[in-house]
Structure formats: structure tokens, C-alpha cells
Amino acid sequence: MSAQDPREALGDAPRVRPIGRPHWRGLWTIYRFGAVRLSRIVLETIVGPILSALLFLAVFAIALADTQGFGGEVSFLQFLVPGIAAFAMIQASYEMAAFPVVYDKLEGTLADQIMSPLMEWEIALGYALVGATAGLIVGAGVLAVAWAFVPLAFANPWMVVAVAPLAALAFAFLGTVTGLWAQKWDQLSVVDTFLMLPLAFLSGAFFALDRVPAVGETLIRLNPVTYAIDAVRYAVSGWHATEPWLALAVVAALTVGAASLSLRLFSIGWKIKA
């Protein structure tokens, strides 16, 4: 070995890699870890949700098709497809963020991530990005398959680009919060059953708001899922029940709110650190 070899000068000691904020390589690593994990059970994480959304679509189409009218602008199926795609996206984003958090907490592997030179908020971001990715794939999959049977206009394509990632992230961040809160699977299932499922079903996903009695309509208009679904529907079909800008603003506000809550809770180590 020559004297000019820098390794000799440093005595072969590994050097400290300077880490900026955000820690891009670490973030990429946990994102890849989460994504690879979900892709190994792709049947449960992606194919299953797409299939069950398509089943909803089939059942609604057969049971209700001739009872619905939308003033000739869009057909019932054109109304329904983006609603169900958004519904599936929201559910998948939420679950694919919440399940991994609970799993890692129960298995104790969340500690491994906290020990790494990643800030806690970067870990939260990693979980949320994985959930949002899964949700976007599920939503896109539903749209793609349905497109083979139902002509979709994609009336406002920029709106899809704006609202779908925001909505997916919002519900993924909410998933990380409930995942953090739940001490066991049962508790996660309580939130799922009594909060997320009713919010997702009793939104504008499956029916037009003007069909609902006045009290119900007010309640549904208080449900943030309604706005996410309406914005996606506006983007895909052009049909909308709320002002598109208002819907986009509500979704954006929800994303910011859910993200700050999640990043904050991870940062203070809520339910993670003793």
C-alpha cells in the first residue's frame, strides 16, 4: 500500500457520513422497506381492495342502474366509478399506513427505526408515503379496470393530479395516528369499524347528495371524505356536488392537519417511548 493511499492516512476508520435534514437516504430506505413489505402480500394489499371495489361497482350497477338519473350529463356508472375508486383509495391509504405501524409496534421493530439516525417525523412520513402509494395504486387500478367497461371523460385531469395524492396522504397520515394510538389489533379494529367505515360509506361515494333527507345531507357535508370523493369525481367525470375549489381546499386542509398531528405525535414519542 502506497503512502498516498487516503485509507492509510485515516487509519481505515469509517468516516461519519454527513446527514442533512431531511435524511433523504434514510427516508428512501424506510419507504422502500415499507413498499417491499406490502408488495410481498400484494394479494391482500392491492388486488383484494381493487377486487372488492369492483364488486361494489357490479352490485350497484345491477341493483340500481335504472333507478338513477343525473340529468343526462353523466350516466349512473360514470358517476359511480370515480366515487368508488376514491373510496377504495382512501380506505387502502388509511389501512396500509395504520397496519404497518401497529405491526411494527407490536413486533418491537419500530424501535429499530427510532434508533437509526432518522428523526421521528421522518419515520412518520415514511409510513404515510407507503400508505399513500398503496392507496394511489388501488385507486388507479379501480379506474383502469372500470375504464374498460365505462367511458370515463377525465374532464379535469389537473384536479386528479392535485387531489388524489393529497387525499391519499391525508388518510395515510390519519392511519399512522390511529396506528400509533392502538395498543393492539382490536383497538385498531374499533376505530375502523365505528369511525373510518361509517365515514367512508356515508359520504358522497355511492349516491348523490340531493337524494338524502336534509339532516343527512348536512351531516354528509360535514364529512371530509365527501370532499375528497367529490373532488375526484369532478376531476374524472365533471359532475360535482360541492364547489371544486372548496373540495380541494378541504382536502388540502385535512392533509396539513393530519400531517402535523402525525409528525408531532411521532416526534414526542407518543405511545412509543416509555
Binding site: D186, S189, V190, L197, F201, R211, V212, G216
Partner: peptide
Amino acid sequence: TQTLAAPVVTALLFFAIFNLAL
């Protein structure tokens, strides 16, 4: 909660949305 409550809530929600849509 997973084996009894969740299925019941899901069935009730289906009932609600089909009736609302109709």
C-alpha cells in the same frame, strides 16, 4: 369487535347506502 361488531356495522352501512341511493 372484529368478529361481531365489524360485520354488523358493515351490513348496516350497506343497508343505509342502498336505501339512500334508491
